[in-house]
Design a binder for these strands. Structure first.
Lengths: 149, 149
DNA sequence: TAATGGTGTAAATTTAAAAATTACAGGAGG
DNA sequence: CCTCCTGTAATTTTTAAATTTACACCATTA
């Protein structure tokens, strides 16, 4: 599996909530329209983000708001909230090497050592980008947008 | 999609070819037994590695050998040989955001900028590990193996 | 207090991607 | 010329992701 589209949808939702959360009631239906994903998928994503403390969702009446400073919300945190062991799932390892072959017997250890390092590097990279950066990029692109249309 | 198990199978094969390529005739059938993957899958992997110049495969008579110094074979090169655009496929982006929403209209640009950085970091990390490292890890584990059984 | 418009979640279905299987043409070497 | 191998296309199976359907439950308000 890859870093799922759920993660990109989550980022989309978070930018939306930051931009409109105070003014409008941001419901799963609204986010479903904006992202093009199913509203149940959205609710599942919001539910994960809520459990992690990134957002609050009003039960009953509805509406999501940010619950946390933008600099504390890294891409790593978002991915992890949605899929706790996404990092290890990112690197597939063939499951049935022959235990009779010296290489087959040891390949998992060998791969784990290197993959572990790569995974750590990736986590560092994912931690280096925050929602603050993403929103400032969004503002940059949106201005360009106004300029040309 | 993830960094496919094809990549781990490829690494398995390369270690196998390094260890036995000179002594035995390393066929796709033999690698299929050692890795536990189908021999057609193996042949496809070997074919990709061959095109990249990493190995040679004797046509007709069969048998694979390394064709390149160990230090020049990085994990990045292996993955890329097998799936040229594996990096971009690693990060899923939802495909149908609403063009009527200012966020929907710009989200792809926003995500691409950050994902690009993450992808570059990942490539650097994948380039930092070579087959030489993997084989030296293999020798390390194999010795431990002898010690305890 | 009942209608409305939300959330939360489980279960079933659909869709799409990866891997295995089947099949077969063709080369090298004994 | 027979055997063992490669190369590759086409099909089928398997597995994972995403959507859909369904429904219980909550808050607000008319």
């Amino acid at each position: 599996m890859h870093i799922s589209t759920k993660c990109s949808v989550a980022i989309h939702c978070l930018i939306f909530i930051y931009e409109y959360g105070e003014k409008k009631k941001v419901t799963s239906e609204l986010l479903s329209l904006s992202t093009g994903s199913n509203s149940v998928t959205i609710r599942n994503i919001l539910s994960s983000l809520k459990k992690d403390g990134i957002i609050s969702v009003k039960f009953g009446t509805g509406g999501a708001t940010l619950n946390c400073p933008l600099e504390e919300i890294t891409i790593h945190r978002i991915c992890k909230a949605i899929e706790p062991d996404f990092v290890s799932k990112l690197f597939g390892i063939h499951s049935l090497p022959s235990p009779l072959c010296p290489i087959g017997k040891n390949i998992h250890n060998v791969l784990n050592r290197s993959y572990q390092k790569i995974q750590n590097d990736l986590c560092d990279s994912l931690k280096s980008i925050t929602l603050k950066d993403l929103i400032s990029d969004y503002h940059y692109f949106r201005i360009g947008d106004y300029k040309y249309y």
